[in-house]
Amino acid sequence: MNNSKFDEWIKKILATEAKEISCSECLDLLPEHVDVEISGGLRREYAVKLEKHLYQCQACRDEYVVLRDLVRLEADGKDPLSGE
């Protein structure tokens, strides 16, 4: 582990909350969260706890990033498979 990863690990440890949402709860909320983000809509009540989970969970964060980018490309009228 290099220093920056070590430091990031410590920050995540200290950001731990007694109650955090599960991966299932996170993935359930993700589509609406992505649509709201891309449309510039009003943030939902759950956004903070969802973002805290995404901060702690690499697997869910990866899914969020891919889903967001895919939906954004289509919202912009771009072909996701064009490689641009």
Binding site: L27, P31, E32, D35, E63, L70, V71
Partner: peptide
């Protein structure tokens, strides 16, 4: 119906 159907559908393919 909280999201667009396709956004919800993509979730399965991405996962």
């Amino acid at each position: 119906g909280d999201s667009k159907f396709l956004t919800w559908a993509y979730k399965f393919a991405v996962n």
